[in-house]
Design a binder for these strands. Structure first.
Length: 575
RNA sequence: UGGCCUGUAGUUCAAUUGGCAGAACGUCUGACUCUGGAUCAGAAGGUUCUAGGUUCGAUUCCUAGCAGGCCAGCCA
């Protein structure tokens, strides 16, 4: 289940203790008790391959796969590929990758709605023979007009009472390709005065002379969602067909088709989709961000897509824990992004090896350290995990520290380095700042410090204390790296909240990406593969981007560490 | 203005189905610390949408109202 070799014990225990029921699981339990489905549990995740998966889909995958797992059932992955004009193989591939990466295992149960097209066609003929479906010649505009409105009932069209033979003949000719796109549809004959508009003779088949990514040109009529979905579930003997809230109004239709067909009938259950602050979750908008180049692609680390989060460095375990925690409900809600980050940090804190990296280097010369000397100092790989061991870090006369870790005129609460002050270099020595070197513009370009040889390793034999411990790298040994720092993609908690006539894209955060080019990282990360995750001590969690090469290291910042100093600072400035 | 669904700390969810409204995240204190990280301890935070009703007792059941979501694609 884990991708980064983390020990499963801790996380699993948390998940276990956190395990909770929800209304969907309650229904499954009840059905098991009453033996409604002969003790079987079969769930499915049915994505349409018309875009990449996002964190909202992770919630659905987790729910469906989780239920199958917990109740000893089966989990199917099924592509709902009933609309050839929008679907592509690229999406099929990305979706299978993402579902697998998230840890959901469908075994042999990978299906495609398009594999059932023949059966659907046969069922449609059955319905026509029962007098429950008819071919309608009305143009698009006419159909919607005659469907009525929310408050007014629909009116029957002239074709509603065609004979069964005529319908059979017409549907056959639709199938054979005798009619152009949009000229005819097959409709279910239900109830034009139903207060539920979905029941007002919904369209089952439309004519689409389009090539399908799997069936090619075999078909020129394609089934609509409502007609197709229940049949797909029925064929696969799904027990609990879990979908999102907007399909609630479609359940009567789902039930009607299956009842009229007299076939195996799963239970449809609807839950609320996930919303997250500072991002958008609609496929349409995500597509727009990609196509409009507002992001670098579907896997841009700022995107809420699974591939984006993966590239960013989020772990599947963190996403799973998050999904578990947010639960499942029937009312719309928006989860605070901080909750997701909490689970990311929780997982990474336990599993990510520590390393020292300087984002904005400030040169430090240890004036009393011998020229040309190098020492190898012991550093702990992960204080949260003793089994992670230690490593050697080179130390020499010229170092880099973080610019933020020095202030020439520090305020009271600043206890890092400043003139005359002593601090500890992590795992190395205590140093004291003696001189500040500036350029012609008065910019600080270099610090001169002295070190205390007696404090080697980071402890003073005389017991003297320092207030701060800084990270550092040796100038001669450090690796150059590019760091990509991310903030929220949008600057508003709800990006969709815009003034009349404005667009959500105006809420895009102009500072969502900051690229740092001259970062210095300790040499131990040299040959780490792509997607390796580290904690850069005192800075945050970073992962190696696919753009990274041995000569040009590229890291993505997954998340910052909690920073109480930053909090103090903002508290001061906003006062 | 039709129908369906939903309202519990700032946020996301619980409450053994009618029995003292809890947790996590967030916020704020404090302790500890070779990461201003992590960890630990504590605090604040509620008219359970509102009003009636049933009941010894209602977040839970009933009625009415209010608020929000979804539905008039040959999308899913």
């Amino acid at each position: 289940m884990n991708t980064n070799g983390d020990t499963p014990n801790n996380n699993d225990k948390i998940v276990e203790n956190d395990a909770r029921s929800d209304f969907v699981r309650d229904i499954v339990k009840e059905d098991l008790k009453t033996n409604k489905f002969d003790g079987r549990v079969v769930t499915r995740f049915p994505p349409e391959p018309n875009g990449y998966l996002h964190i909202g889909h992770a919630k659905a995958i987790n729910l469906n796969f989780g239920i199958a797992q917990e109740f000893g059932g089966k989990f199917h992955l099924r592509f709902d590929d009933t609309n050839p004009t929008k679907e592509e193989t690229e999406y099929v591939e990305s979706i299978t990758n993402d579902v697998r990466w998230l840890g959901a295992d469908w075994g042999d149960n990978l299906f495609y709605a398009s594999d059932y097209f023949d059966q659907m066609h046969a069922y449609a003929v059955d319905l026509i023979k029962k007098g429950k479906a008819y071919v309608c010649d009305c143009p698009h505009s006419e159909v919607s007009k005659m469907r009525g409105t929310l408050t007014a009932p629909g009116t029957p069209c002239p074709h509603r009472d065609r004979s069964i033979d005529e319908n059979l003949d017409l549907f056959d000719r639709m199938h054979k390709g005798e009619f152009p796109d949009g000229s005819k549809t097959l409709r279910a004959k239900i109830d034009l005065s139903s207060p539920n508009i979905n029941m007002r003779d919904p369209i089952m088949y439309r004519i689409l002379h389009a090539s399908h990514h799997r069936t090619g040109d075999k078909w020129c009529i394609y089934p609509m969602y409502d007609w197709a979905h229940g049949i797909e579930d029925s064929i696969e003997k799904i027990t609990h067909s879990i979908c999102t809230l907007e399909f609630e109004n479609h359940r009567p239709l789902y039930d009607w088709f299956l009842d009229e067909l007299g076939v195996y009938h799963p239970q449809q259950i609807e839950f609320a989709r996930l919303n997250l602050t500072y991002t958008v979750m609609s496929k349409r908008k995500l597509l727009e961000l990609v196509k409009g180049k507002f992001v670098s692609g579907w896997d841009d680390p700022r995107m809420p897509t699974i591939s984006g989060m993966r590239r960013r460095g989020y772990t599947p375990q963190a996403i799973r824990n998050f999904c578990k925690r947010i639960g499942v409900n029937k009312f719309n809600s928006t989860v605070d992004f901080q909750l997701l980050e909490y689970f990311v940090r929780e997982d990474l804190n336990k599993n990510a090896p520590r390393v020292m990296g300087v984002l904005n280097p400030l040169k430090v010369v240890i004036t009393n350290y011998p020229d040309g000397q190098t020492e190898e100092l012991d550093a702990v790989n992960n204080p949260e995990d003793p089994s992670a061991g230690t490593r050697k870090v080179p130390f020499s006369k010229v170092l880099y520290i973080e610019q933020d870790d020095f202030m020439e005129n520090p305020p009271k609460k600043f206890f890092r380095l400043s003139p005359g002050k002593e601090v500890r270099l992590r795992y190395a020595y205590f140093i004291t700042c003696t001189d500040v070197i500036k350029d012609a513009n008065g910019e600080i370009i270099e610090l001169h410090c002295t070190y205390d040889p007696a404090t080697r390793g980071g402890d003073a034999p005389d017991g003297r204390k320092v207030k701060a411990t800084l990270h550092w790298v040796s100038a001669d040994h450090a690796l150059d790296a590019e760091l990509r720092l991310y903030e929220h993609l949008f600057s508003k908690p709800n990006p969709n909240e815009v003034e009349e006539g404005h667009d959500y894209k105006e809420n895009l955060n102009p500072n969502s990406l900051t690229v740092l080019k001259n970062c210095k990282i300790e040499p131990s990360v040299k040959n780490a593969p792509i997607e390796t995750r580290y904690q850069f001590e005192r800075q945050g969690y970073f992962s190696i981007d696919p753009d990274s090469t041995p000569g040009n290291l590229v890291f993505n910042r997954i998340a910052t560490l909690k920073d109480t100093w930053a909090k103090i600072q903002t508290a001061e400035t906003t006062r």
